[in-house]
């Protein structure tokens, strides 16, 4: 464990140096993707100049939900970069051979060989907007609330990671060129609005099949005092742990199934 932590530090530092080779580019990437996050909220912002609330949710509450959703997403984006190209780079080009030769966990290597560092802006932007939104929503935050926040953010990241790990692991069996990842990635948008606006089918899907609801909507209900979702809120760590175990099992099977392309 300690060794892995040290390695994580080394991997991160190494990649950070790579990125800083183009210093100007790195800063432009950081600030322009920050602008992207802010503009991403433009739709809701304009919308609420026309309507007072969205099915009982006020502007500030939706703002809180949006800001919160950026936190797990930011952490996930930082480490998920390699997952998108996994099929092409590691399976088809055979880079996975190299991974197998090293005495470190395969998943650890794949995730931490490359970082999308500028996505940390999502965490920064998210925290800033979250603070503003929380203040405007009002209500008292107990010590327990402050303790829960990092826990559910972590769980949210783990849920995103698990879903995309499962989808990525599929490329151990199919040399996936069709790409099921983009449509699922686009479903992240669903989680930025109260789940209650969707029909039963989508609500069920976002809770139990692709559990994005547990990564953004259900966690925020606690801080926005919607007691009817209490049970779901307390299930967040359970769902995260469950899906992560499932993802690890599928990944493990995939690794065993891997046969090199021989190139």
């Amino acid at each position: 464990m300690k060794r892995h932590l040290r390695l994580f530090g080394l991997y991160f530092a190494q990649y950070f140096k790579v990125r800083l080779a183009y210093k100007a580019d790195f800063f432009i990437a950081f600030f322009s993707s920050m602008a992207a996050s802010v503009i991403g909220f433009g739709f809701v912002f304009v919308l609420f100049t026309k309507i007072p609330r969205l099915q009982g949710w006020t502007f500030n509450e939706i703002l809180f939900l949006y800001a919160f959703s950026l936190l797990p997403l930011g952490f996930f984006n930082v480490i998920s970069w390699n997952l998108y190209e996994f099929g092409d780079l590691y399976i088809i080009q055979g880079r996975f051979d190299r991974i197998l030769l090293r005495p470190i966990n395969t998943l650890f290597q794949v995730l931490f060989e490359k970082f999308r560092i500028e996505s940390l802006q999502e965490v920064v932007t998210g925290l800033a907007v979250l603070t503003i939104a929380a203040r405007r929503v009002g209500g008292h935050w107990t010590a327990a609330d402050y303790a829960w926040l990092p826990v559910v953010v972590l769980c949210g990241s783990v849920i995103y990671l698990s879903v995309f790990l499962i989808l990525t692991a599929v490329s151990f069996w199919f040399e996936d060129r069709v790409g099921i990842v983009p449509p699922v990635f686009n479903m992240l948008t669903f989680g930025r609005y109260p789940l209650t606006i969707y029909n039963v089918f989508i609500q069920f899907m976002l809770s139990w099949i692709i559990p994005f609801g547990f990564a953004s909507f259900y966690p925020t209900t606690h801080f926005l005092h919607r007691a009817q979702f209490n049970a779901y809120f307390h299930l967040v760590p359970v769902v995260a742990a469950g899906f992560f175990s499932l993802a690890c099992i599928i990944w493990g099977r995939g690794v065993r199934n891997y046969s090199s392309t021989g190139s």
């Binding site: 183009y22 322009s32 503009i39």
Partner: peptide, 18 residues
């Protein structure tokens, strides 16, 4: 001139959408 503009493109993407 800027070499890599992926971040800029992302901002443009959201700007155009809105």
């Amino acid at each position: 001139r800027l070499q890599s503009i992926l971040g800029l493109l992302r901002a443009k993407y959201f700007l155009l959408e809105l």
